[in-house]
Design a protein around this nucleic acid. Structure first.
Lengths: 249, 249
DNA sequence: ATAAATAATTATCATATGATATTTTTTTAT
DNA sequence: ATAAAAAAATATCATATGATAATTATTTAT
């Protein structure tokens, strides 16, 4: 399918700035109170709506009309801003990597640096708890990011257009780091299969409590995960870490 | 939308009997070597293909044509046998409840009976390991059932037509039973929120290793979960159980 | 203030999808 | 062997979907 590239002009307005909510995601029409050119807001509104929708129902079952309606724009806007459904999905990936990795990168870097400098078991346990806490914070508490977590989790379960990028930049490094810390906590120099299984199970365990996962909420009798949920989940993980600490090996 | 109910005639041929594979799911055309009337085989073939497809891509993103092709039948066969896409989805639920609950029901009943008869901590630990082992067996090892696990997991994450039935008959009782055993292992008479969180995390942990979840396979460097994978996952869970045993409380 | 550029909207298209009607083939009953 | 019933296949329909073209509104630059 050939394309006259000319209409691709509007594809990348400038990004990154606050975006108040209105039509769920978009302000009233043609009002740019903020002084910014309108397009950037619209772009963000579409992105947020898309991340939520794709995360909930997946690429195939989500229609561009649904996203447009949720974002408060018309359906062709998606083509105008992102070149199509595919382009929008990839743009969601970039957005998530920017906003998701951000809060985690700091603590991950710190843990990694500490690990390379040589950690004792106790120190590794503390770093691991830091990491899991940051993860739970981002996945369970922050509403906006927990929607992103839904997107990421889905893509990891059923690989699609975003799989490669998310796996390489988020999932694999995250598991690797956790596994490495776990190995150190257990008193071994480098990671084995058991550590990786532990890492996967811990992170999957947190993922089971992102607010979108309504089953867990229902089982627990919670309306939303919130602080209490996060604390409880982390306590369980801490207990597991303590268990590794106390065993000799 | 009105329906002339007459064409519903063929909706429920007799069920339950072995089904050899061919066109992935269906035998060569018009051959009923087995002596059974052909329709039951076709029905099963469609069901198996549907469970796999729905489990992988979900209700909305799975087309009846895809299912028909995988089953080796033509597209209208789905309407003929199940009255439509909805009916097929519900039929998948019934099929799963029959074939999934089956292998688990026995060990679950046993655990439940033991729990009510009064278990000591050690006994509860053994029962819990039994239960988790059976679960891992069914979810990780058995190919056919692990496809069903994909279906169930998806439905729990994004409730649809099958949610109610699967939640009530599978998920909730499973978590409740596990939580109860966990409480006993910890030395308490009845379950609290922490036990339920532990139960959810354990079962989610197993679910992370069903063969469909290719990320985990990739991280572990496995081609398929198989026996080794199941054993490793169970070892990790056992370690956790041992941790609870050794703590006083 | 006006023209050019950008953003948003409406109208429409080709294709895919679930469903249905119709026809053909196979099986079963007599 | 033949007729009736059941199963399978083909053809087709109405609707939904992603995409595009054409039009209108708004903003920006002069």
């Amino acid at each position: 399918m050939l394309r006259n590239t000319s209409w691709h002009r509007g594809i990348r307005p400038n990004e990154d700035f606050p975006m108040p909510a209105k039509n769920r995601y978009k302000q009233a029409q043609w009002r740019s109170d903020s002084g910014y050119s309108k397009s950037a807001e619209t772009r963000k509104a579409i992105l947020r709506a898309a991340i939520e929708a794709f995360g909930k129902t997946g690429y195939g079952a989500t229609t561009t009309r649904q996203i447009a309606a949720a974002a408060g724009v018309n359906q062709p806007a998606i083509n105008y801003y992102f070149g199509g459904k595919d382009g929008l999905y990839k743009a969601c990936t970039d957005e998530i990597l920017a906003n998701f990795v951000g809060p985690l990168a700091e603590v991950a870097q710190q843990a990694l640096a500490a690990a390379e400098a040589g950690l004792d078991r106790k120190g590794a346990a503390r770093q691991l708890q830091e990491l899991l806490s940051a993860l739970a914070d981002v996945m369970i508490r922050s509403e906006q990011v927990s929607e992103a977590a839904g997107f990421v989790g889905r893509e990891m379960r059923e690989p699609g257009l975003a799989y490669q990028a998310l796996y390489q930049n988020l999932w694999a490094p995250g598991i690797e780091l956790a596994a490495r810390l776990i190995a150190t906590v257990k008193g071994r120099p480098d990671t084995d299969a058991a550590d990786r299984v532990d890492a996967i199970m811990m992170i999957s365990g947190i993922a089971a409590f992102v607010p979108g996962q309504s089953v867990s909420m229902r089982i627990m009798g919670w309306q939303e995960a919130g602080d209490a949920g996060k604390a409880l989940v982390l306590t369980r993980l801490s207990a597991q870490i303590d268990g590794w600490m106390s065993s000799p090996k």
